[in-house]
C-alpha cells in the first residue's frame, strides 16, 4: 500500500475519534470482518491481534483444548511450540486425507490478491489468515462457516463477552460457550482500517511482457 493511502486511512480514523475496539460506534472492525468474509466465502470472521491468537481461537472455537490431540501436518517449529503451550498434541498417526483441524494462509503484499483463491483451496473447519505480513503490525483472523465456532472464538478474545460493543454490561445467556481461559486478543480499529484498505486495493502484480525478456 502507498504511504499516502496509509496516511489517509489513519487520518480518517483519527478524525472520527474512534480508535477503541470496544467503542459502540466503531466501523473499522466490522468493515474488515465483512471484507474477509466476502473474499474468503466464509460466513463468519473473528479478528484477533496475532497469528498465535488466531491458532488458539481456531482450536478453542472447535472445543479443542488442553489434553486433546489434532491432525495438522506441516506445521513449523513455532506453531508446534505454541500448540505444546496450549497442551494440544499433534497426532503423528493420522491417515492421509484425514481432516485437519485448521488451515493457514499468511498474507503479504505479494499474495494478498490471491486470498479468495487460497481460501477456496482450504477444506478445514477453521481458516487462519495471518495478516501481519501486510505491514501494520501483528494481526490475524479466523474464518469459519460454523456459528458456534465463531461464538466461542469471540468469547475467547474478549474475556467471555460476545459483543465488543456491549462487553461491559452484557449478561451471558449461553454459559456453555464461555471459555475457561480468556484473553484480550482484540485488534485495534486503526490496524483493521489499514488492513482493510490493503486487502481492498490488492491487485495481481503486473507481469513482465514477453517482449522485455
Amino acid at each position: 500500500m502507498e504511504l499516502f493511502d496509509t496516511a489517509t486511512v489513519l487520518t480518517r480514523v483519527l478524525t472520527s475519534g474512534v480508535v477503541m475496539s470496544i467503542e459502540k460506534s466503531d466501523r473499522e472492525l466490522p468493515g474488515l470482518e465483512r471484507l474477509l468474509s466476502k473474499q474468503t466465502g466464509r460466513a463468519k470472521a473473528v479478528l484477533v491481534n496475532s497469528r498465535s491468537a488466531a491458532v488458539h481461537t481456531a482450536l478453542a472455537g472447535q472445543g479443542i483444548g488442553h489434553g486433546d490431540a489434532i491432525n495438522r501436518p506441516g506445521l513449523g517449529e513455532k506453531d508446534r511450540a505454541f500448540l505444546a503451550w496450549l497442551g494440544i498434541e499433534l497426532r503423528e498417526d493420522a491417515a492421509e486425507g484425514e481432516p485437519v483441524a485448521f488451515d493457514h494462509i499468511a498474507l503479504d503484499a505479494e499474495n494478498a490478491h490471491r486470498l479468495g483463491e487460497l481460501a477456496a483451496a482450504s477444506t478445514a473447519p477453521a481458516l487462519v489468515v495471518d495478516l501481519t505480513g501486510l505491514g501494520f503490525g501483528p494481526a490475524a483472523a479466523v474464518l469459519t462457516d460454523d456459528p458456534v465456532q465463531w461464538a466461542r472464538g469471540e468469547r475467547l478474545k474478549i474475556f467471555g463477552a460476545y459483543d465488543l460493543r456491549t462487553m461491559w454490561t452484557q449478561e451471558e445467556e449461553s454459559a456453555d460457550l464461555v471459555p475457561g481461559v480468556q484473553f484480550n486478543y482484540r485488534l485495534s480499529p486503526l490496524v483493521a482500517a489499514c488492513v482493510r484498505m490493503a486487502l481492498g486495493q490488492a491487485k495481481r502484480p503486473l507481469t513482465t511482457s514477453g517482449a522485455a525478456s
Binding site: 489513519l10 498465535s52 508446534r80 503451550w85 503490525g137 501483528p138 486503526l190
Partner: peptide, 16 residues
C-alpha cells in the same frame, strides 16, 4: 520465544 507466542505491539499503536 520458547512457546511461539505472539504478543507483539503494533507500530500503529505505539506511534500514537
Amino acid at each position: 520465544e520458547r512457546h511461539g507466542i505472539d504478543y507483539g505491539m503494533s507500530w500503529v499503536a505505539a506511534a500514537f
